[in-house]
Write a protein that binds this DNA or RNA. Sequence first.
DNA 1: GAATCATCTCAAACCGCTTTGGATGCGTGA
DNA 2: TCACGCATCCAAAGCGGTTTGAGATGATTC
Lengths: 355, 355
Amino acid sequence: MNLKELATQLGLSPTTVSRALNGYPEVNETTRERVMAAAKRNNYRPNTRAIRLATGRALAVGHVIPIATRHEIVNPIFADFIAGAGETYSRNGYDMLLSVVADETEETTYRELKLRGAVDGVIVHSPRMDDPRIALLHDIGLPFVVHGRASGSATPYNWVDVNNRRAFHRATEFLLDLGHARIALVNGLEYMDFALRRRSGYVDALASRGIVADARLMTSDQMTEVAGFQAAHTMLAMPNPPTAFLVASMISAMGVRRAIEAAGLVMGRDVSVIIHDDDLSYLKNGDAVPIFTATRSSVREAGRLVAEMLLNVIAQGDAAPTHRVHEAELIIGQSTGPAPGPRSTPEGMAGTTHP
Amino acid sequence: MNLKELATQLGLSPTTVSRALNGYPEVNETTRERVMAAAKRNNYRPNTRAIRLATGRALAVGHVIPIATRHEIVNPIFADFIAGAGETYSRNGYDMLLSVVADETEETTYRELKLRGAVDGVIVHSPRMDDPRIALLHDIGLPFVVHGRASGSATPYNWVDVNNRRAFHRATEFLLDLGHARIALVNGLEYMDFALRRRSGYVDALASRGIVADARLMTSDQMTEVAGFQAAHTMLAMPNPPTAFLVASMISAMGVRRAIEAAGLVMGRDVSVIIHDDDLSYLKNGDAVPIFTATRSSVREAGRLVAEMLLNVIAQGDAAPTHRVHEAELIIGQSTGPAPGPRSTPEGMAGTTHP
DNA sequence: GAATCATCTCAAACCGCTTTGGATGCGTGA
DNA sequence: TCACGCATCCAAAGCGGTTTGAGATGATTC
């Protein structure tokens, strides 16, 4: 059943039917009701393909997911982010188009999306420092919103981000207040913007207490269980091991915990851990009392907000770039406690840790 | 730059240009080359919206991701599955349309996708027993492929699945061979088809050795860390605790491991664990030697295969339904070992475990 | 009562491509 | 020479909607 058929059935012209359905004012209310009723009765849905062509709008938003060919990892926050964004889209009658591409071909993908007219705008994931995508999208005139920030970008742009720097600053201070002096940072890859910001929050918090960050206590790697284990395992075997860890993600933290337990230590007593918790639906941080003390910020909620901002940008056209910063909550769980006193290590190593 | 402009620039009709670009035979080779060159020079891309309308094909595939409103969980395998499927789509010039919907509205979503002509086919995720979606999609005539199987479905359909039953049968036998007699099953939700098949593999393997499955050693829940912990924690506190666990996923297994360690036991020595490993990119099962002994089957590869099958179904039209079964590998890691002898439990409980 | 106006409706153009059904010119075999 | 086939190309009709511009009707104003 298409518009023309519906129109003949009603004894009206396609024009009037179209206007009636789309809420234009120049159609009699009783006519509109007749049309509405007939549409419902016939289970009529306008053909999306035709609407798109006629209006020149794609009514779709693109998410380009680059797969790093080096280490083929799909970002685990992706599923929840998409879930959040998807809610916004379906509420507004937009489709979500996903392109999974090798990261070398990412630029081409954006260009094609624009040239083919497949989307009205895109979301930029996992921004890096001086991210080239921002200038690119600006050039080709494809509306976009960045999930995160890209430090060093010359052109202004729309973004939604967590206050990563402050989150890690607060977490570090919290550990310092508990008496920890040797605090390790198990960070994500530091070409990612969020990882850089987190590190600077951590370094600054240490500095403001007169502590110079120790390079041996900072690692930067994929946020996987195995990498988390490796990092913590190595550091715990140092002559002067850390008493606390600041960990970039729940998944890394599982590896960190494994390393702690493998060393015969107890998390929360011998070693404290604070994680950043994206509040992923399938990786809840405990029930009543959280397992990990954490800086928490829902990535699903971020998905909603980013999507809303993009739809606004698409609707408004040329408005000035908007930003939105979220503060992460610092929630206390079972993985932190006062710094242990000089401990008699099983291996007989020196215990105190004052630099 | 559109087709008409390109045509006038070349002094040809749109018809000829269209045919030249699409490889039709009724155009002179030299003309074709001229057209191709001009298209490249002008960076011409046909407008997808127009192609879709003209051909009546959507050139897009839908993935409907239901979010269970009860427990708002996004399936963690989703990201990797999508990555696999996405590769296939982009290689074939198809777009991937994602709809994230509350599960009550799932049926409506499929109907709308069809009526609106938004997609040429869909992938069905997470099939349940007697899944109503199969009859529905059959009725509305939307081509589809199921990732997994839906036992009890009357109508035949296309599917790609892992041999879950055999995988868990083999894993159970492996544990039995190691001398384990009390083997627990920490399963996924048993309205999911894969969970049912896994349980039956487990139960049958026990039965073939004359062991009747103990209901207290079988749990069925969300595959989360917390649920895994709870299940294992409870069972390990039983008077006659299991010496081995069969766990539905890597994430659950992390909770199981936490429970084992919280009980002061060592995984691989005191308690054996076998997991099912979907080979997720961000949850690798160790480097050289796997952490967990596992039945492994890449969900990303499954994504590729499912997508390929769907594109075939779309192209072929009315061919007979196809199936494809994958065998999971059984890979040996550090989490399994011979059943411990009668152990002196710290709490002073009786140690032997013969039923 | 004529002019003006608001209200409602419609015919037709258009979006950018595909595809049908010719048209044209040329070589070829009868 | 003529009919025929073949190779090339084109005009025009879709695809299924939206949107412009104009016409018809009845009410209002002077």
